[in-house]
Design a protein around this nucleic acid. Structure first.
Lengths: 112, 112
DNA sequence: TTTAAATATTCCTTGACACGAATATTCCCA
DNA sequence: TGGGAATATTCGTGTCAAGGAATATTTAAA
């Protein structure tokens, strides 16, 4: 039984502004390196480097088209994130948080 | 109209193994610094430092109980992550990816 | 009031990484 | 075949963050 282990690599790849922007951009469809660099105001080498990080972490995949590389998002990392976040549903619906705290406080008081 | 902007701070806070472990641990309920350090085999100062990062990023909140600090997860970051990941639903349900690719390929071929 | 427990903070060192600049590689086409 | 376009890679540099060790702070209890 695996208890929803989130891959650190995915998160650290996303935890960089330029790469996050690239991912948001690719949400609307695949793009070439040049298009990505243009739209985000990046220099081509930086774009390539960030795309390599995203590719190594499995967030992005590349399709070679002659001269150009077309990058697109892969589904798996997002499915994994979704699955992981869902393991915190009981945290997200904090309707019972006050009750939980109250019960916990009671338990603490009677354990000196 | 905000297009689901994910906070980088949240991601970089989670993109560290020890902090990820802390978060996974707190999923089962609030804990004190000492308990967290014990269960994860961390030294107390490191645990405190990581908890500070988690606290500064809003992932965790603290309740002061005399000598001890009880840390618990906050709901907002996870709700935000959930919302953000959901903006990639069309990526996650890759049922039509093959069709998409096919159509896109066709379009590329006829644009020399 | 002194002592011990729980936690936070500081200082230092080291390693990772992002950027810029330059260069290498691959491919198409005239 | 040579040249230009698109992309990747390398190298050097500066910054930032994590760990270790030591210390400061707060609180309860004797």
């Amino acid at each position: 039984m695996h208890k929803s282990v989130m891959d650190i690599t995915t998160l650290s790849a996303l935890a960089e502004p330029n790469r996050m922007n690239i991912v948001q951009l690719l949400r609307d469809g695949p793009l070439t390196v040049g298009e990505i660099a243009d739209r985000l105001g990046l220099r081509q080498p930086q774009a390539s480097k960030h795309l390599k990080v995203l590719s190594d972490s499995g967030i992005v995949e590349v399709r070679v088209d002659a001269n150009r590389r077309i990058y697109k998002l892969r589904s798996e990392p997002f499915q994994a994130m979704d699955y992981w976040v869902q393991s915190f549903r009981h945290i997200m619906e904090d309707r019972f948080d006050n009750l939980d705290n109250y019960l916990r406080e009671l338990q603490n008081k009677e354990k000196p």
